[in-house]
Design a protein around this nucleic acid. Structure first.
Lengths: 108, 108
DNA sequence: ATATTATGACACCATAAGGTATCCTTTTAG
DNA sequence: CTAAAAGGATACCTTATGGTGTCATAATAT
């Protein structure tokens, strides 16, 4: 149950995989359906799906003769959490801006 | 002024680079200082820094004989924005939970 | 002036990554 | 039963990546 941050970040590093995630956010899709959205072979897409599984960003299940993939939003949690550490720096800038504005327009 | 999402995600995909970002969040550091935190050569670290610059996640400036790197928190913005699209799925789950709770304890 | 410090610039390497093509197996429609 | 549909599994290929080593160069301390 470890965070598994690396596999997730690794999975997100490829544009094709990010696009796949966006597609799967709409609905569950078979390998052929996912493949139809790209100009690459089914085998290539299958590899991307496997990387996404390793990153815990999607789930795959076999139904009959097709392989259905579904988005696993929770897998993004570790990533978002890691990034949230840097929120403080944005906040600091907002605070600085707020202070600047207040100082700029002294009310009394 | 484009988002440049890919270079940022690419830069974040490596654990060493993520660690560098964390270090730089503390203070500006020279190449030697950054290198001291890892068990790899200065050249290797320098390459990582270059990738971080391409991802717009840090800034580098030459001061005298040293090269100082500083964190650029704003560079994370495109990444966070992209990820925020998926927040809705978490919210949906929260809503489902809330609904479940409300249903579970009918008040009247 | 002269080491020493801090890098830049390359050349080079092994492995990981992203893709393709081919062949085999499992389901399912006729 | 038989062919088409949907994938799985390999083997292979090219480039990108993450690293190392070596040598040259700009700043600095003595």
């Amino acid at each position: 149950m470890s965070p598994a941050l690396q596999p997730a970040f690794r999975a997100l590093a490829d544009p094709t995989r990010r696009e796949i995630l966006t597609s799967l956010s709409q609905r569950e899709m078979s390998l052929n359906e996912v493949t139809a959205q790209f100009s690459m072979t089914r085998a290539a897409v299958r590899k991307h799906l496997e990387v996404l599984v390793e990153g815990n960003l999607i789930h795959i299940r076999r139904q009959g003769r097709e392989t259905l993939s579904t988005l696993n939003p929770d897998g993004l949690r570790p990533v978002v959490d890691w990034l949230s550490f840097f929120d403080q720096f944005w906040d600091e800038k907002l605070d600085a801006l707020k202070t600047a504005i207040e100082t700029e327009t002294p009310d009394e």
